[in-house]
Amino acid sequence: MKPFDYARPGDVAEAVRVATLPGAVFLGGGTNLVDHLKLGVARPDLVVDVRTLTSREVTDTEDGGLRAGAAVTNSELAADRRVRERYPVLAQALLAGATGQLRNTATTGGNPLQRTRCVYFQDVTTPCNKREPGTGCSAIGGTTRNHAVLGASQACIATHPSDMAVALAALDACVQVLGPTGERTVPFTELHRLPGDDPSRDTVLEQGELITAMGLPPLPAARTSAYRKVRDRASYAFALVSVAAVLDVRDGVVQDVRIALGGVAHKPWRATRAEQALRGGPATPDAFAAAAAEELADARPQPGIDGGNGFKVPLVTRTLVATLRDLTAAQEG
């Protein structure tokens, strides 16, 4: 492991000042960063420990939403009774990710910033544009079972691994950010980037910008919401595909719907085309399948030495139909 300096500033303002230096990284729970330090994927000069600097409280907001401090652990957020009742999709997504031990350590601010589990990104002996810009993408034409079918580029076909992030995208969460020039709020759906020609940047955050809290807007429809994850084993595996959905159905007609997909793109994929196709229409399996087809019209499966990832297109369709069918049944019986 490359040597690094360690700093534990007194408050977030100082942390942000210290972390503006190139080569500085924030340490939250560390479940991904510490692994990357060992693997040589992350080679910082300075580790700025913010684990105890941000809020570890979930609080009600005046508008009826919730605000989770960045230091709230994934376990605590999933167990919060208000989250379980008002945003079940978020509790389910958190509980579908990692293990009890990791959820006790991983944080609300850190989870969305975890990096891809692309095996080539994590293997420093192979070229990777995300790890070392300009070296090429080893995944293209390699093993692609876990890779993207939407929004990928010639430079990178990695997927974002977080379950929690898929739920936050569906819920229209907002990210509170503190940076060298002050505070700003980033809509969660705009936090992560598509790879384009610079996959080294996962998010729109600038050097030194720190997530301090996650805001959940009031969304009564989210009481009927769900997260459905399909993976290669029953527990403790990343998603092949996943669906986070909020559905409001009355008399068989879709009043409101929010959908985000996981395991298919470089970012949590908000399925706006499918939502548009569904709003005001019938809540039937045929309509759900048609909406999935709409969303997946531009899907580009990757060939691969492992057989490729073409299976994701029908798998997303079936997972989305099953999720919306269950949410419809929960409301209409």
Binding site: Y6, L27, G30, T105
Partner: peptide, 13 residues
């Protein structure tokens, strides 16, 4: 007080 993994924790932290 919580189950965690010390292999992923920096002692200094």
């Amino acid at each position: 007080g919580e189950r965690q993994l010390p292999c992923l924790a920096l002692a200094v932290a």
